[in-house]
Simulated assay, not measured.
Amino acid sequence: MESRLVVMVGFDGIELIDVACVTSGFEHANRQGAVPPYRVVFATPVGRPVRSDTGLEVRGQGRLDGIEGRVDTLVVSGGLGHEAASANARLVGQVRRVAALSRRVASVCTGATVLAAAGLLDGRRVTTHWHYATELARRYPRVDVDPAPIYLRDGVVSTSGGVTAALDLTLAFVEEDHGPEVARRVAMGMVTYLHRPGDQAQVSLFTRVPRPEQVLVRRVVDHVVAHLDADLGTAGLAASAGVSERHLSRLFAEHVGRTPARFVRDARLEAASRLLVATREPLTDVARQCGFASAEALRQAFTPRFGLPPSRFRAEHTPRRGPGGTASVH
């Protein structure tokens, strides 16, 4: 049976999770009956083992300059070694050559730097790990760098954000190739959520806001996140914490950077945005689960925050179905 050749490019200083998310994701798809199956080759510049940024060595399965013929997917890993890799003219030239043989080209995390050095990102909208986005944009002004999304697709080139975003991109490829049911089973097998939409932010409210060191505030924040459908008025939160509303508001301003009411509203809206894209539940159910009294109440809060009413947000952020029912990647 003909297989889909996936070439995963590694170099000294790779991030192991970047590699494992891609290689394991495609292998899990094979276990779930992907037809044709994937054949993943981890290729290094000269075929020798490469050292990861944690010090562990990974043995290559082939030489990058030995890749010939049709390639289904070329994926360049990221890692702390991306600067040296992008300065290696031989490596960059081989990436450019293999990209021309490939149906689609992708990078994980800072692997975008190598694609940029190869000229493969010029004029394209791309993403990378948010921490390195500014430097990528500075070094390659012809590349349109957006640090927010988990992954992006511009033509035949896809780029993903940091580390575990590689799994989201891989699941999106699996769904594109073999349909949503295979992707769902892969996600279940890897004990992860069915892939997040590409336009979801790399850094969410729940990771962007540092977990408060102040014990009382941390307890209230954890309660809010776990009980979005409950009564989360400031008075009730203060009473349950055993402090006055004024004192709770002062603590939140100091440790969270917003009022309790604002934090509750932001948490509910972010949860709603995720449910809108990840499920097909009616708007009334989404509203109820996120603590809004009605679909209309959700709409009134949601539209100013996201610039779209919930129904349009869902339509524009849900992966589009292509021929045969498969989903295209944003």
Score class of each variant (00 low, 15 high):
residue 8 M to I: 13
residue 10 G to S: 14
residue 10 G to Y: 00
residue 14 I to W: 01
residue 17 I to E: 00
residue 17 I to W: 01
residue 20 A to I: 03
residue 20 A to K: 02
residue 25 G to N: 03
residue 27 E to W: 07
residue 27 E to R: 12
residue 33 G to E: 09
residue 34 A to G: 03
residue 34 A to P: 00
residue 36 P to E: 10
residue 38 Y to G: 00
residue 39 R to D: 05
residue 40 V to T: 06
residue 42 F to W: 06
residue 50 V to D: 00
residue 55 G to C: 07
residue 57 E to A: 07
residue 61 Q to T: 01
residue 62 G to Y: 09
residue 69 G to Q: 11
residue 74 L to G: 11
residue 74 L to Q: 08
residue 76 V to E: 08
residue 79 G to I: 03
residue 81 G to M: 04
residue 88 N to S: 11
residue 89 A to C: 08
residue 90 R to V: 15
residue 90 R to N: 07
residue 91 L to R: 13
residue 92 V to F: 13
residue 96 R to F: 04
residue 97 R to N: 11
residue 97 R to W: 10
residue 100 A to V: 13
residue 100 A to Y: 08
residue 102 S to I: 07
residue 103 R to N: 12
residue 103 R to E: 14
residue 106 A to H: 05
residue 108 V to H: 02
residue 108 V to G: 01
residue 108 V to E: 00
residue 109 C to D: 07
residue 110 T to R: 11
residue 117 A to M: 07
residue 119 G to C: 06
residue 120 L to T: 01
residue 122 D to I: 09
residue 125 R to H: 09
residue 127 T to C: 14
residue 128 T to W: 02
residue 130 W to N: 07
residue 130 W to Q: 03
residue 132 Y to P: 05
residue 133 A to N: 06
residue 134 T to S: 14
residue 136 L to G: 04
residue 136 L to R: 00
residue 142 R to C: 04
residue 146 D to Y: 04
residue 146 D to T: 02
residue 158 S to E: 09
residue 160 S to M: 09
residue 165 A to R: 01
residue 166 A to N: 14
residue 167 L to I: 09
residue 169 L to S: 00
residue 170 T to F: 04
residue 171 L to P: 00
residue 175 E to T: 14
residue 176 E to W: 08
residue 180 P to Y: 12
residue 181 E to F: 10
residue 181 E to H: 14
residue 183 A to F: 00
residue 184 R to E: 15
residue 191 V to R: 12
residue 192 T to D: 10
residue 193 Y to P: 10
residue 193 Y to M: 13
residue 196 R to H: 05
residue 201 A to E: 06
residue 202 Q to P: 08
residue 202 Q to A: 12
residue 205 L to H: 04
residue 206 F to L: 13
residue 206 F to V: 13
residue 210 P to E: 10
residue 212 P to F: 01
residue 218 R to T: 05
residue 219 R to W: 11
residue 224 V to Y: 06
residue 226 A to F: 09
residue 226 A to D: 08
residue 228 L to K: 10
residue 230 A to P: 08
residue 234 T to K: 01
residue 236 G to L: 07
residue 236 G to H: 05
residue 236 G to P: 00
residue 239 A to M: 04
residue 240 S to E: 15
residue 243 V to M: 05
residue 247 H to V: 11
residue 247 H to D: 12
residue 250 R to W: 15
residue 250 R to K: 14
residue 252 F to T: 01
residue 257 G to N: 14
residue 257 G to V: 14
residue 258 R to Q: 15
residue 265 R to H: 06
residue 266 D to E: 15
residue 273 S to Q: 14
residue 274 R to K: 11
residue 274 R to I: 08
residue 275 L to M: 15
residue 276 L to R: 01
residue 278 A to T: 04
residue 278 A to W: 02
residue 279 T to P: 02
residue 280 R to G: 12
residue 281 E to P: 04
residue 282 P to S: 13
residue 283 L to E: 01
residue 293 A to V: 06
residue 297 A to K: 12
residue 298 L to C: 14
residue 298 L to N: 03
residue 303 T to E: 11
residue 307 G to H: 04
residue 307 G to F: 10
residue 308 L to N: 06
residue 308 L to D: 07
residue 308 L to W: 12
residue 309 P to Y: 08
residue 309 P to R: 07
residue 312 R to V: 02
residue 315 A to Q: 15
residue 316 E to I: 13
residue 319 P to V: 02
residue 320 R to M: 09
residue 328 S to A: 14
residue 328 S to E: 14
